[in-house]
Structure formats: structure tokens, C-alpha cells
Design a protein around this nucleic acid. Structure first.
Lengths: 349, 349
DNA sequence: CTGTTAGCGCTTTCAC
DNA sequence: GTGAAAGCGCTAACAG
């Protein structure tokens, strides 16, 4: 039965050296005699010493607590679980530990959780924000100089680093895929024209059209609400034009589902007679439509990249916000394509 | 731009009181004048004070760090992700935060992670152990008086609390379910007779047989290796007896899969001509066979219970190890049954 | 290379 | 009710 905690002073006494020597050993300093170090280490083992990071951290008076906060909006969704796993991998191998919390899309919860992490002195935060998160929610954190990287979703006005999927590349690849399946009239369906994301994706569509086809018809670009209903409406309009499309890439999966609805209503079987690809945003619906090819990001890879970015910022002291883009892959469901998904875009680091 | 961290002393100065008064306010002590408290609180808000739990914890010299370690063997598996979510719920609402790490079934990783958590002064640990975890791995932790609860899997010799699924109740319910489907000759397949789990499950089978049928034939109990191959073998033996069974409840899902294999080999369609139910242990395979009804535990519920148990032990100072049992439910796949799963056994608290 | 001396930010007696 | 002082376990200057 050990009497209370064993401290550096205990082991100093037992090893016949002073506190600071022990401290040096703990930090792997080269200023200490090998024999002494060995002695100290063995005493530590014998007495069952455990390092008190809290105390060390307090003294160092900076937040190098070696703890990284990770806050996700829905851990129940395997996308975010995988994201957390990716983060954990790099965080662990950098000698940090991960504080992980789930907000369940609850802003109050998110605030609490972030506050709590701050009290514990996290060195940095990776946040997959709850819906409705605003820049002001992150204000105090960034003001205090704690590096933050926002993943998956954007927080509009926030001056923080973020990582999002490669919209342009994803749609580009989708179009290529459809072309390789023999389509030449491919529609771009859904999304509001006044959003940045819409333009990034549309840009991917146009670029692919330029590079794969002879050109494309702007009539094939049909905007709509980025919802299932919007998709149904959009496919209707797309099919009413002169030379009908035989395939569509959709702004997101909700639109894609809607497009499928619309096709079925017209007696067209999606996936067989008309190819549909959707960007995989509304991830809750991920497994719903097997006939659908989706453009998906690799969550673990995204987690790893987010963590790397954060660690970089932590070690760099203070770097300015940076937005990076995560690779994206086409996931082909059913036996209607090649393998299980080919990785595109930049390589994972 | 704030100059360094703002501390109690800053806010004491600004509020015109002393450090200790501030401290009392922080702890919500009733020994402080309401006016003073209000003043102090407002100053804290103005200066953007953040409580330093590390320092507090250091002074209190006990591990009431308000942090709970959670270590799971595979966060990629949604079962464990849900478990973590369940834990997080109660942990958060008790004002604790969760350190979550993933071991990927790697014992070294697990050791590292637990060590790291210890250094950070966790108040307790919930562990879903990696395969091969031994009592000795937990020895130092429990010796240091940190409450540990082991979930999902057992660690043989360890004197720690644990939470596992309700074997008896689960099999009982499975048999009831089969009876309600009209079966009267139901086999119990697979598992080694020399394990405690086997007997718990078999006991559920016998009890159900007693209560639902007139009695049962011990010939219908066929042990085997708890594996897919074992299941195939067991079903063969079960079908060779005088009055053949028309359904089986299996020791686990691996056995159940094997039984399905065996049935198909004999030209019998599992799920249609012969009902198979399996205890959902080999959770990796969860989604593999849609024809199968499984006995599953509710992972979130299990997480919540684990957390409750841990918190109880933490507040109780030191209680002896306790094993509790988590409710279990039947998950009926396909459209071959009623709803999506009915909850059985004890209610979740 | 090793020992001494101050604190990090907080809580906690114990006086006032 | 509120203030002064001591100290949790550790690290960071400096001396030796």
C-alpha cells in the first residue's frame, strides 16, 4: 500500500539525487550522467512513479498540456467516428492525448464542452461544428491563442483553419466516371447558385466537360434547393429540355435521392437507365440508396489531415488560418462499376 | 490583447477582494456575500477568466480531475462508437469530460494510452479491452485506487467492476420469439460447455423451454467450438437426431453463420424454412447476414450504465468490484418479424 | 553535471 | 464574511 502519491522528491530521496536531476531525467535531458539516469529510472519503476502532467503543465505556465480537444457533432454517425479515429492516430503518435466529445448537434452542449476543454488547458481543438455554429462561438478560443481547426463543415466568419472536401475535384471525377460509362449528355443538378460550394462544384463539372466532351450545354445545369424535393424538381426540368441527358451529377446526395424519385415517377429506373451521382453531404443518408454512386470523402484521412494541420499550428506557435482540402473518392455502389472506390485528388500525407 | 493568462489574483484585484474570496465564489460556496459574488462573477466575465482545473486539481492533491478515461478496442465499429456516446452522455451531465482513445485491438497501444491517461490524472476509467488484455495490465491502475469498469469483454482475473450483456435473459427472449413464431423444437447450438457464458446462455434456454414448452429434449443442446465451423458442425448433429428441430438459437453469431452454412449445404434455406437466432458477440459481422435474428445489447445503454457505475464508484470513494448486466434486445432483420427490435430485460436506468 | 531556490494558479486552514 | 499565508508536484533559472 503506497502512502499517497509518489513524487519526484520521493524518487530523488530514494535515488540519492536532487529533485531537479530527476526532473531532467524525466525530460530526457542529455545533461545527466548515464549511471545516474539509470539509477533514477530504476527507482521510478520500483516505486511505481507516475508523472504528474498537470503539475508540469502548471509550472510551464503555457498550454502545452499535450491534450487535443476533438468535438464532433454526431459520433453516432460512423463518418464522424472514423474522423475521430483518424485524428486519434496522429494525435497519439505525436504523444498527445485526445479529449473527445459529442455534441449531438446541440449548440449549448458544444459551448459547454468547449469551455470544459479550455479549463483543462487543451493545446488545440479540432471541431466538426454543430449546425448553426457561428464565428462568435469560436471567438474566445482563438482570441486566447489556442489553435483551432474546423473540419467537415464551415463556420462562416471564423478566422480559423479548416479542412473541407475537394468540391471541384470530386465533381470532376464524377463526370469522368460517367463519361467512361459511355454518357455524353450529363446534367448538373441542384444547389443554390449563390453559394460558394455550388460554384466550386459547378466549376468541377465545367472543367470535366471541357476536358472530356467537346463542350457542354448550359441548359444541363439546373439549380434547385439542395434537398430531396429540389432534386425531384430539377430532374423534371432537366428532362424537359431538347436533347435529354442520360446521366446526372447532383449537388448532394439529397438532390440525388430526389432525382431518383423523379426518375421513378417517370418510369425510368435510376442506376440502370439513367446514371445518378451525388456529392455525399447529407451523410446520414449514406446507406439509403444502393443504386447511387456517391462522391465521398475518406473520413479517417480527413481526420488525419486535420490533426496534422493542428499539430503543425501548435508547434509553429502561431500560424495564420489556412484552409486545406481533403481528397475525395468516388464510391460506386452495386456491381455497376469497377472496384469499391478509387482515390482521387491529392494524396493523403 | 490580454497579457498572459488571467488568474484569480487578477480578478481579485479588479473586484477589490482577495484571492480566497474569488476561490469561494468559484466553488459556489455560500459563505460569500451575494453582492460580492455578483461583482466577482461580472469581473470574471469581463476579463474573460477561464478556470484552471489543472492548478485546482494539483492543490487538492487528489485525483478529482473530473476527467474520465474511455478506451475502446475499435472505434471504427459503430458498436463501440455508440458505447462511447452513451458514456459521454452521463459523463458530461455529471460535469466530467471524457478522454477517449482507440486501441485498434493493439495491446501496446492500450498500455500507452492507459499510462498517458494516468499521467493526466483521470478520475476513473472505462475500458473495452483489446483482445488478450490480462489482469496484470490493469493491476497498477487498480492498485493506485482509480476506479475501473470493464465493459463488453471480460478481463479474467481482474478485480474490477464490469458490465456485460444479460446472457440468460437474451437467450430466454430468443426462445420465446421462436415459440411465438410457431416453433416447438428449438435447438441450442454451439459454445464450449466449460465456460461460464455457455452455462448462462444455456440456462436461459432451459428456463424458456420450461416456461413456454412442455419441456425440452437435452438432445437439442449441441455444443461445439464457438466458431463458424463449429456452427456448421453443430447444425449437422442437431439435424441428425430423431425428431429434428425447426429452429435454433446459437451461442453466438459466428455459430449462427455456421449453422446457416450447414443448412444451405443441405438445401434448407435459413430464415425461411429454418429459423436461426444468434447472440451478437462477434460484432464485426453484424451486418453480414440479413436473414438472421440476433440478440444484441444496446451499446449506448451499456455505455450509460458503465458510466453510471463508474461515477458511483468515484463518488463512493472506494467500493468493491461489482458486476452488472446490461439489457439485451432481439433484433429482427428482414421483414420476417414485428418491429425493429424490442427491448427486453431490465430497463435502462 | 548536480543542488538550491522560486514560483505556476489554485485551495485551504486559520486568524481578523 | 473576508484576508494572509502555506503548499500541491513540477520545472527553470542560477549557482556550485
Amino acid at each position: 500500500m503506497t502512502k499517497g502519491r509518489v513524487t519526484v522528491i520521493d524518487i530523488a530521496k530514494a535515488a540519492g539525487v536532487s529533485k531537479s536531476t530527476v526532473s531532467l531525467v524525466l525530460q530526457g535531458s542529455s545533461l545527466v550522467n548515464d549511471a545516474t539516469r539509470a539509477k533514477v529510472n530504476s527507482v521510478m519503476r520500483d516505486l511505481g512513479y507516475v508523472y504528474n502532467r498537470g503539475a508540469a503543465n502548471l509550472r510551464q505556465s503555457g498550454s502545452n498540456s499535450k491534450i487535443i480537444g476533438v468535438v464532433v457533432n454526431d459520433l453516432t454517425n460512423s463518418f464522424f467516428a472514423e474522423l475521430a479515429v483518424g485524428v486519434d492516430m496522429v494525435v497519439q503518435s505525436a504523444g498527445f492525448v485526445q479529449f473527445l466529445s459529442n455534441t449531438s448537434e446541440n449548440l449549448d452542449r458544444q459551448r459547454e464542452v468547449i469551455a470544459s476543454m479550455r479549463e483543462h488547458g487543451i493545446s488545440g481543438l479540432i471541431l466538426s461544428p454543430a449546425r448553426g455554429t457561428e464565428a462568435s462561438d469560436l471567438k474566445p478560443l482563438v482570441a486566447s491563442g489556442i489553435p483551432v481547426v474546423v473540419a467537415v463543415r464551415n463556420v462562416p466568419g471564423a478566422k480559423v483553419s479548416s479542412i473541407a472536401s475537394d468540391n471541384r475535384q470530386g465533381v470532376f471525377a464524377a463526370v469522368q466516371h460517367l463519361v467512361s460509362l459511355g454518357h455524353s449528355r450529363i446534367a448538373f443538378l441542384g444547389g443554390f447558385r449563390d453559394t460558394a460550394v455550388f460554384h466550386e462544384r459547378l466549376e468541377g463539372y465545367r472543367a470535366a466537360a471541357r476536358s472530356c466532351l467537346l463542350g457542354h450545354d448550359e441548359d444541363l445545369v439546373v439549380d434547385s434547393a439542395p434537398s430531396r424535393a429540389g432534386g425531384a424538381e430539377a430532374i423534371g426540368r432537366a428532362l424537359s429540355i431538347g436533347s435529354k441527358p442520360t446521366a446526372a451529377v447532383c449537388f448532394n446526395d439529397a438532390v440525388a435521392f430526389g432525382a431518383c424519385d423523379g426518375l421513378r415517377a417517370k418510369g425510368i429506373e435510376p442506376g440502370k437507365e439513367f446514371a445518378v451521382v451525388g456529392f455525399d453531404d447529407v451523410i446520414e443518408a449514406k446507406t439509403a440508396v444502393p443504386a447511387l454512386t456517391t462522391i465521398s470523402v475518406d473520413p479517417q484521412g480527413m481526420g488525419r489531415r486535420a490533426a496534422q494541420l493542428l499539430l503543425k499550428q501548435i508547434s509553429a506557435g502561431k500560424a495564420e488560418a489556412e484552409t486545406i482540402v481533403s481528397s475525395v473518392r468516388l464510391v460506386v455502389r452495386e456491381s455497376c462499376g469497377t472496384g469499391n472506390g478509387s482515390t482521387l485528388g491529392r494524396k493523403q500525407a
